[in-house]
């Protein structure tokens, strides 16, 4: 098993799928000649040519729609939206065309597109390049939403997403492309549904996804070493559908839940996980679940304010200590 970077894992999945199937294409802004803002398609233009590695104009809604239309006839587009903030412009095609076409055609037509896009607060990118949007995508019937927290997931989720017959939105993160991790040497298909226990624990469950899995893991180490609290960390790599059974299983074991999300709390992953806990396993709880979320502000430019607007591992530790001590 080789250790590679997150962007290399995405690139490898592209390369393998494009080599296998001539109808797999990649499209997006600057992904071809320029090699991709995050290098996720580096070298593929030279290998597969301009018909399959397509530098699009800056027309997010229509190039996304074009990929969706191509998928109606069996093409498998992997569409990169350079920033999830730009995905707002493509919402009409993602929601109204890709997500609904199977249903409104009575099952005749499907849109097996993959849409990849990074969100999240990075290095002072300002309010219009730092938003998180997973909460918007996960509320849409007919669309799968996954979010990789590691190179292995980034590789395996993309591999499965390309071959799945549903439209899949892959929520990546600006800060994670250079993260290193082990990826299987052979082909690997990660499930598009479910969740993964990344750390076993008995006292509290920390639910994270994408970057907040890492904050949760850091918090769990601090809690263990400094406070003797053993936190379980659950990686919700599938945001739609959420893993109701997996959430319930962990809460039934630890009896406490903290949901860690980089996005603002309202109508978010935390709200949804809390609702699932209420519906599925409320009487397993020893304490009321809490969310560790971003502040309800457009992301500020000033670095100190920017960092203060989103949670970190210390905030998670504080939330757990408060929950357990009851103070």
């Amino acid at each position: 098993m080789a250790e590679i970077m997150y962007w290399e894992a995405i690139r490898r999945a592209h390369d393998e799928e494009m080599a296998r199937d001539p109808l797999v294409i990649a499209m997006g802004e600057d992904i071809g000649v320029a090699g991709g803002t995050y290098k996720a398609t580096k070298g593929l233009y030279d290998k597969y040519g301009p018909e399959r590695v397509i530098d699009t104009p800056i027309s997010e809604n229509s190039f996304t729609g074009l990929g969706i239309g191509a998928s109606f006839l069996g093409v498998r587009p992997i569409i990169e939206l350079m920033s999830v903030n730009f995905a707002w412009l493509a919402m009409d095609q993602i929601f109204n065309s890709a997500a609904k076409v199977r249903y409104m055609s009575g099952g005749q037509l499907t849109a097996p597109v993959v849409i990849r896009s990074p969100g999240g607060t990075a290095h002072q990118l300002g309010a219009q390049h730092s938003a998180r949007m997973e909460k918007v995508f996960m509320g849409i019937a007919g669309l799968r939403v996954v979010t990789p927290s590691s190179p292995k997931q980034a590789y395996g989720l993309l591999k499965s997403a390309v071959r799945c017959n549903d439209p899949v939105f892959i929520n990546e993160h600006e800060l994670m492309y250079n993260m290193k991790g082990e990826v299987p040497d052979g082909e690997y298909f990660h499930p598009l549904e479910g969740s993964e226990v990344t750390r076993q624990g008995r006292d509290v469950t920390l639910f994270g996804y994408n970057i907040s899995v890492h904050w949760s893991m850091q918090a769990a180490e601090i809690l263990s070493k400094q406070h003797g609290i053993e936190a379980e960390v659950v990686d919700l790599y599938s945001l739609s559908p959420l893993d109701r059974a997996g959430i319930c299983e962990s809460v039934s074991k630890t009896h406490r839940a903290v949901i860690v999300e980089e996005a603002e709390a309202p109508v978010g992953v935390g709200a949804e996980v809390m609702a699932i806990i209420n519906e599925e396993c409320f009487f397993e709880l020893d304490a009321a679940p809490v969310r560790v979320s971003a502040k309800m502000v457009p992301t500020p430019f000033n670095h100190t304010l920017e960092k203060a607007s989103i949670p970190n591992a210390k905030d998670v530790v504080a939330a757990v200590l408060k929950m357990i001590s009851g103070k």
């Binding site: 729609g65 074009l66 969706i68 239309g69 191509a70 109606f72 095609q93």
Partner: peptide, 10 residues
């Protein structure tokens, strides 16, 4: 519009 162009691409 873009769906039609996408079918044409295919």
């Amino acid at each position: 519009f873009p769906l039609a162009a996408g079918m044409a691409k295919a």
